[in-house]
Design a protein around this nucleic acid. Structure first.
Lengths: 211, 211
DNA sequence: GATAAAAATGAGTGATTACTCACTCCGTAA
DNA sequence: TTACGGAGTGAGTAATCACTCATTTTTATC
């Protein structure tokens, strides 16, 4: 009786997944072809169908893989660490550091993000996974963070925590999208300047007589 | 010499665009077929190619349609009116009304939005149209609005106007996405309550000792 | 009603696709 | 050495697609 070379199997599968991420992220799912993926992965086209029953199954494999990676304790942990062990007493610096770190992360995982966002727009089940694995967790962490900040007297206590974190993420994504998508059409400000503006608005709002 | 029935022509074109929006919004651009679109529009497949040189031109047609809707005199006017002729001296109510109106519009044109957002992620030329026809215009209108508000002493004068409008739109989209995508997974608050929270944060930020 | 131009049609076409399957290759065990 | 079985292959296939074009239908004008 022969034993299957499990490790090699995983390697090939990973090669295919990696190639699929690259290609699908560039052209979208339907516009990507299995022969293209096979070529980039360095395998025969037939091999793909030994690991994935259909083309759609490749996508399923990717999305679950991606959501797991993005929600991985590693990422969430570094997030937590940043929020809680920052020894500075300055909420402003904490939020700026948080935004900066998240922005860098989004930049790194952008190819994956693009696939997940696209699929999430069209499939409820993926939105559900996304919510359970990432959104709800991020919201909970923020709630803890907020409690600590309120206790320290740094953050207003009468704000709805859900609305507050939604706002922070909204600001974050707006900045990311603007710089990523429309950056080539205007003269971009220095990132740190942009961040300072955002943090300023998040902290004190737009109304007159703030400060 | 014969004259072409201009009105009927526009009608057919609109039928095709409407059918395309329905189908592409459901299945994505690449997965939608021209024969399907023709069938739903009630025209022959060949007819589509009299109005749109290629399939991709249909997509461009949808984007242009969106631009027209967003920039339509009627809507833009009501937008401007809302921003400038609001006789209340209360910036808070103005922004709330603005958000509410934009939210309702986004809801109505959601199928189209989904297509445009998806394709904008993959095609620079679509991003460019969006920027020139919508983003930059919206930014300009906001700048004027801000100047007026600052003059009236309602809005802080030392805030970068680009960052400010980006922030408002970020908050708007975050609320829309949360309610639209994750609304079924949690108990949603009343929309007006949500709006009040958002406006509160936009106005005064998260820092302690605001108000 | 006659005429002609424009608009609409849909069968046809070449290109492309996801997927199949008969086959090769190779590590292992007897 | 031989024989086995699964991993890997890639030419082949049926289906599907965007787009064309010769033909028919509709329309406007006299």
């Amino acid at each position: 009786m022969k034993r299957s070379p499990v490790l090699k199997m995983a390697e090939k599968e990973k090669k295919i997944i990696d190639a699929a991420i690259t290609i699908i992220s560039e052209k979208g799912f339907s516009a990507s072809t299995t022969s293209e993926i096979a070529q980039m992965a360095g395998v025969a086209e037939g091999t793909i169908f030994r690991y994935f029953k259909t083309k759609k199954d490749i996508l399923r494999g990717i999305v679950i893989h991606l959501v797991k990676i993005m929600g991985e304790p590693l990422i969430l942990d570094s997030f937590k660490k940043m929020l809680f062990t920052q020894n500075q007493q300055d909420l402003r610096s904490i939020i700026k550091a948080l935004l900066k770190e998240r922005l860098a992360l989004m930049e790194v995982i952008y190819p994956m993000l693009r696939i997940v966002v696209t699929e999430a727009m069209y499939h409820e089940d993926i939105r559900k996974i996304l919510y359970e694995e990432i959104v709800s967790k991020a919201l909970n962490i923020f709630k803890l963070f907020r409690e600590e900040m309120v206790a320290k007297g740094l953050m207003a206590g009468d704000i709805d925590p859900l609305a507050a974190s939604r706002s922070i993420y909204g600001n974050l994504v707006a900045l990311f999208v603007y710089r990523k998508f429309f950056g080539s059409m205007t003269r971009l400000e220095n990132l740190d300047q942009d961040l300072d503006h955002v943090v300023d608005i998040i902290m004190h709002g737009l109304a007159a007589g703030r400060k």
